[in-house]
């Protein structure tokens, strides 16, 4: 329902943290591409909101081999990052949505949204977020375990080591407004180790440890691809059936690894 909720517009990260975490806890408004329609259609109740558009939280910087992306960085800017993040961002929505939606909003959006959680999981990205208890850091899984998106929590930024190589493959979308039923991201780190993550193989983004172990043990791409299903938890939804997901996952793992030159 279109509430009369007040919206504050902090002009720095520190102000944003204060505005979000004070009582009553505020809901974060980033690009609004998910929150605004949900609000219009009465699907979320918002008591108080904080808009990040002026908080200068949209920077993208690189230093000492690490990339740091502010939570309010638009997806359009993220498309310029190397694989797997760049091509994954490019695969979300159309140009108008990408110009408005943010990486933080994407990480905070529940499945079947949140495509970027796949690449960020493969990259071992470190998230930084604030809540009434202070500022925390952790991986995608830690962030989810802490409760993920909720009033009173502000995701600040996400950082990851720039990989040696990265790849991203996704099930082709019929058009830009379709969601992606499945994607696979693969990364080779400075130490040569390969990490792999998928979206759509399980109800949320997941690491494919068994496939990684096959590669680490000197196994072939085909063997790694075959092993990938053991980490999957395929499910039925409107986008794809569990059976289809199981069949497609090894194919996409194979392609992502070929692309990576594993």
């Amino acid at each position: 329902m279109t509430s009369t909720a007040a919206v504050s517009m902090p002009s720095s990260e520190a102000e944003a943290v204060a505005a979000v975490t004070e009582q009553p806890f505020a809901t974060v408004l980033a690009g609004g591409t998910l929150l605004v329609p949900q609000h219009t259609l009465g699907q979320v109740a918002v008591e108080r909101a904080v808009w990040l558009g002026r908080a200068e939280m949209d920077g993208i910087s690189r230093s000492n081999g690490r990339m740091t992306v502010g939570a309010a960085a638009p997806l359009a800017a993220c498309t310029r990052l190397d694989a797997p993040v760049g091509p994954c961002a490019a695969n979300i929505g159309d140009n108008e949505v990408k110009a408005q939606a943010t990486i933080g909003g994407n990480i905070c959006s529940p499945a079947p949204y949140g495509d970027l959680r796949g690449p960020l999981l493969a990259l071992g990205a470190v998230l930084r977020w604030a809540d009434p208890d202070g500022t925390h850091t952790g991986g995608i899984a830690d962030f989810a375990a802490s409760g993920g998106a909720r009033p009173g929590m502000l995701l600040l930024d996400v950082a990851f080591a720039v990989p040696e190589a990265g790849s991203f493959v996704a099930l082709r979308r019929h058009h830009t407004q379709s969601l992606t039923a499945m994607s696979v991201s693969a990364v080779r780190g400075a130490d040569g180790a390969v990490t792999i993550a998928a979206t759509g193989a399980a109800p949320d983004a997941c690491r494919l440890h068994a496939a990684e172990a096959v590669l680490a043990g000197g196994g072939s791409i085909a063997d790694a691809a075959a092993a990938s299903v053991s980490d999957a938890d395929p499910y039925d939804d409107a986008l794809a059936s569990a059976a289809y997901r199981s069949r497609v996952l090894p194919v996409y793992v194979g392609r992502a690894l070929e692309q990576l030159g594993a």
Partner: peptide, 11 residues
């Protein structure tokens, strides 16, 4: 170009 349905007035 912006989708007006995705755009909150305050922004």
């Amino acid at each position: 170009p912006r989708r007006s349905c995705l755009t909150a007035l305050c922004t």
